[in-house]
Design a protein around this nucleic acid. Structure first.
Lengths: 147, 147
DNA sequence: TGGGGCACTATGGGCGTCAATGGGATTAGA
DNA sequence: TCTAATCCCATTGACGCCCATAGTGCCCCA
């Protein structure tokens, strides 16, 4: 199954590296890629990550948009300036740069969370907080609908 | 990956030089160029920079336009008068001239930002300001669309 | 069915290479 | 001649590439 699913937390070592979970790694590597594309989420303190084709997918939608609209400029800037490639080393690790830390608050541990076509990178506590918030929202929604 | 992506900030030394990030440099140099073409952005306090073929690319779109149209004259003037070549030295640095400083407000540090087919040069604070403005606009747009 | 071994993941660390930066020396230009 | 650009080299800190180890789950075979 080549979908990103589940979540797990790994430790950052003394050199600032962290292992990308093998499950996730395999999906990207089996597509022949040795690097990841990471984008700072607009509304969450997390990064959306996937293979380089993730960027290509976004670029495609950009091309079809009106190139003179201000939104197109904004989108391009967001995708390219606020995004980054993360190189996977031979052991399937990435180095946690300030680019990641600033946006997520990551310091010593990283939570990887599947999101079907891509995955996310979180600071563990933030992830847990977000997770319970989402669960609460869904439960509340269900309660309203069934009452 | 031969795309300009991500952003990083480098320091200007006592002689007014600054290193162009290796990632970006490699893309230009692998195309066999030792100098860059820089153009003052119309809407932003930044410069659009790329290999000399960037100018060629702009020229091409000009040729296809009516040479007697006023906008074509304006464009040509803009491309050539408001543009400049930047020489890369042996170590991959450029000298930060007044041409750069005036338009961007750069003084001690330079932020390089990827823009897919080319990259941009910013004064770090200006870049950060623009970045959060873009994020705010996109987030707002998304909020309107999903509500 | 239980035990042993194999495979693999996460993690730690050594080491060489390269990028970013600083500065001296030489050359060209005003 | 004085200033500014260019070339060359040194330093240092980060990163890539390599290998080692411990823990774990799985499979196979007795």
């Amino acid at each position: 199954m080549n979908r990103f699913l589940g979540h797990m937390t790994n430790r950052i070592d003394a050199k600032g590296r962290v292992s990308v979970p093998a499950q996730f790694r395999l999906i990207v590597q089996s597509a022949g890629h040795t690097e990841l594309y990471a984008l700072r989420s607009l509304h969450l303190p997390a990064l959306d990550v996937g293979g380089p084709e993730l960027l290509t997918r976004f670029d495609k939608t950009l091309e079809s948009a009106d190139p003179f609209a201000e939104t197109a400029d904004d989108m391009s800037f967001y995708l390219h300036a606020d995004g980054s490639f993360l190189k996977l080393d031979a052991d399937g690790r990435i180095t946690v740069t300030d680019f990641l830390r600033e946006h997520t608050g990551i310091s010593t541990d990283v939570t990887f969370a599947g999101a079907n076509t891509h995955f996310q990178i979180w600071q563990p506590d933030q992830f847990e907080a977000h997770r319970s918030k989402v669960r609460a929202r869904l439960a509340e929604k269900r309660r309203l609908e069934t009452s």
